[in-house]
Amino acid sequence: MTIEQGTPLGKKNFAIVIENLLKRFDDVTAVDGVSLQIEEGELFGLLGPNGAGKTTLINILCGLIKPTTGSCKIGGYDVQEDTVKVKDLIGVCPQETAVYPYLKGFENVNLFGNLYTMEKQTLETRRALLFETLGLTAEANRRADKYSGGMKRRLSLIISLIHDPRIAFLDEPTVAMDPQSRHAVWDFIKDLKKKGKTIILTTHYMEEAEGLCDRVGIIDHGKLIALGSPKDLILSNGVRDLEDVFINLTGRKIREEI
């Protein structure tokens, strides 16, 4: 299967460079020879059904698991060799709602701010800004186990961005959110992009990818099967939307395996 290359953005500084990345778990190949370059300030969407290899790819980029072969660089640093420097550059909002339920909202955020050794004043200022932006100010002093599912997702997002990372990995950030919360997060992501952040977004929602992403990569069975701007992919496949692009390339619906 050939990879459809999209239109280059014309920028030269790459935030992420992935070369021939392969990851096997016993006899399962989760990531199969992926090569990819993501430019600084780009909002890149990683699309694919459950089990396609998106989260494995992000886990490798975060230094959580080692690739079987291949290499990846973030901000110019090799993820395997300069893991600590890479961790300073990135923020990761995991797919699962990972917050400490017995800590208050602000305590959760403070904990991670301190793990990034932020100064107290900077931490407090940024925490207040993020709580305000994502509509959680009134809930900051409540324990996280009293939050609704959508509120926990937003809190998780704040935790991942409290240290103002240059590169953000957002793994399904709007899943299980109500429409209002989802739009708030979309606005927030757009704002991050305006500030020059590089964002890697994985999502099942095609409208989310189409509306937000500069480029998308479609992954299926660990392989990168398409790469380009949403508009170019739709045009080159002669279809209406990204959902149809996936059907056109794989013969399946992206969400039928969810």
Partner: peptide, 14 residues
């Protein structure tokens, strides 16, 4: 179980 160990590992904490 709740992903917090993974979340801490993503930070520069040794």
């Amino acid at each position: 179980e709740n992903g917090m160990m993974k979340r801490i590992r993503i930070t520069p904490t040794t």
